[in-house]
């Protein structure tokens, strides 16, 4: 008797829990930024081998970065096949704020990363040994993956010129 009543409740609880993890947690996994650690940047770039690529380093507290996002959204809408990767230099504890900002700016479908390294300067140096940390910092890769780094917000015309060159 005890067994027959306990099991359905247990099963119901288990199913609910499973459903919760399937729907909620996996949904979060799909949207949460990836953690950028030492070595991650090289993997990130390699995944887009032989294709033009733009990597944008930004922060939730950087006004210039937030303004730049309007241009990024336009470029993304006009050239949806161009991979644009958003890398937040905020601490990984800010991942939810990073995600919320990308959603707010209509960029949550872009590949997204957040710094997850105890010494962010080491990570920056690995990405670019000449980068002092100013943001936004944009890297334009051509199909041969020649890289060009630009600091600061740029106009849509600048974007188009850099993508064409």
């Amino acid at each position: 008797m005890i067994k027959s009543t306990a099991m359905p409740i247990f099963r119901l609880f288990s199913c609910t829990l499973l459903l919760f993890f399937t729907v909620v947690v996996s949904a979060n996994d799909a949207n949460e930024p990836n953690g950028l650690r030492l070595g991650s940047y090289q993997e990130l770039v390699a995944q887009h081998e032989a294709k033009p690529l733009v990597v944008v380093f930004w922060s939730i507290s950087c006004a210039s970065c937030l303004k730049e996002m309007a241009t990024i959204k336009e470029i993304h809408q006009e050239q949806p096949s161009l991979p644009i990767v958003m890398v937040s230099i905020d601490d990984s504890t800010e991942a939810s704020a990073v995600l919320a900002t990308l959603q707010d700016k209509g960029l949550s479908d872009l590949e997204s990363w957040v710094f997850t390294e105890s010494n962010p300067q080491r990570l920056r140096y690995e990405i670019d040994s000449t980068w002092y940390g100013e943001i936004p910092r944009l890297y334009f890769f051509d199909a041969d993956h020649n890289r060009r780094g630009i600091s600061g917000k740029i106009s849509k015309a600048d974007w188009l010129e850099l993508l064409a060159s």
């Binding site: 922060s59 006004a63 100013e134 943001i135 600091s151 600061g152």
Partner: peptide, 8 residues
């Protein structure tokens, strides 16, 4: 001339 956060 830059529209950026130098944090410096």
């Amino acid at each position: 001339r830059v529209d950026a956060c130098p944090e410096h």
